[in-house]
Amino acid sequence: MRLRVGATVLVLAVLLGLSIVVSTAFGAEQLPLGSVARVLWARACGCVTTDLASDTIVWQFRAPRVLLAVLVGAGLALAGVGMQTLVRNPLADPYLLGVSSGAGVGASAVLTMGLFASAGIYALTAGALVGALAAALVVFGVATVQGGLTPLRLVLTGTVLGSAFSALASYLVFRSPDPAAAQSVLFWLLGSLAGAGWQQLVLPATAVAVVGVLMLLGSRWLDALLIGPETASAVGVPVRQVRITLFVALGVLVGVLVAVSGGIGFVGLVVPHAARLLVGPRHRSLLPVAAVLGALFLVWVDVVTRIAVRPTEIPLSVVSGLIGAPAFLALLGRRRYRFGS
C-alpha cells in the first residue's frame, strides 16, 4: 500500500525538525533539553544568553554539524535515487561513478603530501573535491569514448576505475613516512561530520538544492528513463541529453558531499529503496520523501557516532553500515518488492 506523498513528507519533516533540535543535546557533553531550548530561543529572538558554555556547544559546534548531517543525508538519498535511475540498477549507490575513490585520492594527497596547504583548513575539502570531480570526468570520458553513458557501461567503468583510484590512494598512504596518515585517511574515508562550521554549509546546501530542484523538474523524464531508453525515447525524452545532465549533476553533488563529509556508506543505497516502498517509484513523490528520510536517518546516525563510545567518535560508515546492511536485506527480501527485474 502506498502512503500519500504530501502527508508523508509533512510527517517526516516535522520529525526532522524535532530531531534537529533534540539531537543537539547529544554528544561528548550531554546537555539537558531545557538548556538547548534556552540557547536556541535566545539565538532566535536575539536576546542575550547567560549560559555561554551551552551556547558555544549548541550553536557553534552542534547546530552546524546537525544541519550538515541534514544536507549530506538528503543529498546522498537524492544522489542514490538519481544513480539507481541512471544505471537502472537497484545496487547502485551515489559512489558508483568512482567519485568517492577519486575524492579519496585527493584527500590522501592532502593528508600525506600536504597538497593544497595554501587552502588552510579547507585543504582537505579542496583536495577531495578536486579528486572527486576529476574521477567523475575520467569515468565520463572513458564511458563516452567506449560507446556512451549506457547503464551497463557506466556500472563497469565506474566500478573498475573506482578500484584503480582506491589503489592509487592506498599507494599514497603506503609511501607516506607519517604513520598517523593511514589512520587519518581511513577515518576520512569512513565519513565524519566532526568539525563542521557554519561556513561549510553553503556549498553542500547549494548543491543539494540545485540538483534536487533539477531532478524534480525533470521527474517525468526520469520516470520514463527508468523503464528503459527505448520507451523513454518513444515518448519523446531526449535520452542522451538527460543522461549527460544527470551524470554531471550527480558527479558535482556527490563530489561536494564527499568533500565535506568523506564517504558515508549505505545512506544513498538504502534510503531510496525505503522511500520507494513508502510512496512508489515515481520521482515526483520519491525524491522529496527520500531527501527527508535521508536527512532524518543521517542526523540520528551521527548522534550515535557521538555518544556510542564517548568521548571518542566513531566514523559514520561504521554506524550507517551496521544499521544499513540489515535494513537493506530486510527491504529487498520482501517478496513483493522488485526494482525493474
Partner: peptide, 19 residues
C-alpha cells in the same frame, strides 16, 4: 518492456502524455 515494480497501471499509461 520492463515496468518498475510499484508503478500503477494508470501511471505507466500516463507516460504516453510526456510529449
Amino acid at each position: 518492456e520492463d515496468l518498475p515494480s510499484g508503478l500503477l497501471v494508470e501511471e505507466a499509461v500516463a507516460l504516453g502524455r510526456v510529449p
